[in-house]
């Protein structure tokens, strides 16, 4: 019996007549269309990820929040964390750009997949860094409330609740801030990992397939 694959090969090579044929003009139009490749998506989403936390500062309510930080006596922490954050962000952008430039469809499939996954990893570390910073800032705020004599006044509220003691109020505030911190961090983390989970599923699967071939 003839090798089955040879039979298929013979048939395959006669397929040309059945394939669609595009004209010069049709192809010419295509080269100006926008790419919708995974790399492009990763690039766009990463840019958004780098920008969004910084755009938040432009919102009026966020500037008000900054004032609360100062009133709670946390101005120094804010300054140091900002310097630290921007240093790290710059490093991440540099690293991201360098890796992004390395992605080339002229590489072999395995190297291409690896380079894309590496680029992605850079952003992943960046996001983990940001999430930790967000969580940390909630914790520091809780500490600030704990150390402050009159946290309500520092937060811009002038009224004094009557049927609750100052200590109880403090505890409630601290608990609220910590819970809020956990929730915000978790929700943002979930959105992020879900988004990339979907986007990178195919890449990861194919990379695994190629890696397994080489064992």
């Amino acid at each position: 019996m003839m090798d089955e694959l040879e039979l298929l090969k013979r048939d395959w090579q006669k397929k040309d007549k059945q394939l669609p044929q595009l004209s010069f003009d049709e192809i010419y139009k295509m080269i100006w269309k926008k790419s919708s490749s995974i790399v492009k998506w990763i690039f766009l989403i990463s840019i958004i990820e780098f920008l969004v936390p910084h755009l938040l500062y432009l919102l009026p309510s966020m500037s008000k929040n900054l004032a609360v930080w100062k009133d709670l006596g946390l101005g120094n922490f804010l300054l140091i964390s900002n310097v630290l954050q921007y240093t790290v962000v710059l490093f991440f952008i540099f690293q991201f750009y360098r890796r992004y430039r390395e992605i080339s469809t002229l590489d072999n499939a395995k190297k291409l997949l690896l380079n894309i996954l590496k680029t992605r990893k850079t952003v992943k570390y960046y996001v983990i860094f940001c999430l930790s910073l967000i969580f940390l800032s909630f914790i520091v705020m809780a500490v600030g409330i704990y150390l402050n004599e009159d946290p309500m006044a520092a937060m811009g509220y002038s009224y004094q609740p009557e049927n609750i003691s100052r200590e109880q109020l403090k505890t409630t505030l601290i608990a609220t801030v910590v819970v809020l911190g956990v929730v915000v961090t978790l929700v943002m983390g979930c959105i992020y990992f879900l988004l990339y989970g979907i986007l990178l599923k195919k890449l990861k699967k194919n990379y695994k397939e190629l890696k397994e071939m080489d064992i």
Binding site: I38, T105, A109
Partner: peptide
Amino acid sequence: TWMYRVALNTAITLYR
């Protein structure tokens, strides 16, 4: 030859 590589890379990796 060059086309095979770019075309397959697109199908395996870039195409969503």
